[in-house]
Simulated assay, not measured.
Amino acid sequence: MSNHKDEVEFPKMSFLLMAVTTGFVGGILWSLIGYLCYYFNYSTIEPNILLEPFTVGTWRESWIGIILTIILYGIISIGVALVYYILLKKLNTMWVGIGYGFVLFLVVFLILNPIFPSMKPFLQNDINTLIAAACVYILYGLFIGYSISYEHNEIKYFKEKELKR
């Protein structure tokens, strides 16, 4: 039998901070996957296209541009995770995250497309690029969505368990 006083409690991260961390890590992880897709020619869209509207010169294609782009994806992803946190955290199914990722794909490729001059219009992209990008966005949405929903349900479960004591 374990004595409750003997148990070590680690400091707990707030749920909002966990969502922010999930967003940042997700942005970095999935932008790296996007770079791998570009490197192995699954996609013709280079992830540093994000810097295109704001920079001049070829420095964005160097290592500093790649690092800056990855960090920028992490920062933008915090906002994406917060939107999921506010609107969808209570929905505990992987399909919501998959749908969220697909909606993000459509927003980037259909609505935000004119912001990026080197990105072809949606139907002019080759099928490999569209499939690779859709898969990365869907998996990114699944990562963000399921991580946040899982944590929300864990917190809810332990609160209910504590109330029953």
Rank of each mutant, 00 (worst) to 15 (best):
N125E: 04
V8S: 13
I138S: 15
S43L: 02
A132N: 01
G65N: 06
V20L: 14
V107R: 04
W95P: 00
T129E: 07
T69A: 03
S43C: 02
Y137S: 11
K5S: 14
G23E: 07
L88G: 01
I86P: 02
G97N: 07
V56R: 03
L50I: 06
L82P: 05
I45R: 02
A132R: 00
V8C: 10
S43Y: 01
E61I: 07
N48H: 00
F116V: 03
L88Y: 03
L112E: 14
A133D: 08
Q124H: 11
V136Y: 10
I64G: 05
K5Y: 12
N125W: 00
S31N: 11
A81G: 11
L88R: 01
R60A: 06
V107D: 02
L51M: 04
V20C: 13
G79L: 15
Y38A: 09
L51Y: 00
N125P: 00
L106H: 07
L50A: 08
L110S: 08
V103K: 09
I67C: 06
W63R: 14
Y84R: 08
P114C: 09
L142M: 12
V107F: 08
Q124R: 11
T44F: 03
G97V: 06
G34W: 10
S31V: 05
I115K: 12
L29W: 09
L91S: 04
V56M: 00
L112S: 12
L91T: 04
L32C: 15
D6M: 10
I138A: 15
L50P: 01
A133Q: 12
N48P: 00
L29A: 14
F116M: 04
G57T: 05
N92E: 00
S14A: 02
I76N: 12
I67H: 07
S118L: 07
V136D: 15
R60C: 04
I33P: 13
W30D: 12
E46K: 06
T44K: 07
L87R: 07
E61Y: 15
I75F: 15
L130K: 03
P53S: 05
G74H: 15
S118H: 04
F143I: 06
F54N: 05
L123N: 10
W63A: 15
